[in-house]
């Protein structure tokens, strides 16, 4: 007998006397917490991102290229990883060498790249989370992992949802997903949170769009 048959047999015998109606599970929980306007939801996203030490910036679409150019410049990166489908106009003000995401590049090569710029699939306001799904403007998972500085552009308000349930509805499980809430961190030393282990130690999120004038949020920018 194969182990497959053995395990399934054990499970079936264990459940032989169980009578369970096949009713759907009741979901008495909320689809989102609290009522907010669209603008308030975007504000909450900014607040929660900053609370977990992501650095948050806001700008209009016209200001995006200049903002990204400034952030890469301030970081001092000489090379920046770029997903193949990232809108080219985003990086027109960025002087660093652009390293295109490719199947051939090795982890060692990526380890010499200082920054990466991507878009995202969706952002979750209640938890301060951005989700990448490997779309054309996000690239392979490793390009947002090995460089120490990740700049993620979120189009607001259209890419922002309130809650985890709403995010899952928008996402395709067949794609490899990476949910990111702040820079990498650990609670392994005395159960206290410390930022900065293996993933990017600096996460900058640019909320682009809306009618807000160019305004830097101070939160998390220290």
């Amino acid at each position: 007998m194969s182990s497959r048959e053995r395990i399934l047999g054990r499970v079936r015998r264990a459940l032989a006397e169980v009578r369970d109606e096949d009713a759907p599970v009741e979901r008495g929980y909320l689809r989102e917490h609290g009522a907010r306007s669209v603008a308030e939801t975007v504000d909450l996203l900014a607040e929660n991102l900053a609370d977990y030490r992501a650095v948050v910036h806001r700008c209009t679409a016209d200001e995006l290229a200049a903002t990204l150019g400034r952030l890469v410049g301030e970081r001092g990166s000489t090379a920046v990883a770029v997903p193949t489908g990232l809108p080219p106009e985003w990086l027109t003000a960025t002087g660093a060498e652009q390293v295109a995401d490719s199947a051939e590049s090795t982890p060692y090569e990526l380890d010499r790249v200082g920054s990466v710029v991507t878009g995202c699939a969706v952002a979750i306001a209640e938890t301060g989370t951005i989700v990448l799904d490997g779309g054309p403007d996000q690239g392979r998972r490793r390009i947002t992992l090995i460089p120490d500085h990740h700049i993620c552009v979120v189009r607001v308000p259209e890419q922002v949802v309130s809650s985890v349930p709403q995010a899952l509805e928008r996402l395709d499980p067949a794609r490899p997903l990476t949910w990111i809430s702040g820079p990498s961190a650990t609670s392994d030393i005395e159960l206290d949170r410390v930022e900065g282990v293996h993933g990017p130690r600096t996460l900058e999120v640019v909320l682009v769009g809306g009618d807000r004038p160019s305004a830097e949020l101070n939160t998390g920018d220290s």
Partner: peptide, 30 residues
């Protein structure tokens, strides 16, 4: 349900820094 209850119960965070999901293999990624 669990992506809401697990992080809050374990590390007391709204969300843990990284969650990865994958379905089989993806051509050219991973």
């Amino acid at each position: 349900v669990f992506l809401q209850t697990l992080p809050r119960s374990s590390t007391a965070e709204r969300m843990n820094p990284y969650t990865s999901t994958w379905t089989g293999t993806t051509d050219g990624d991973g």
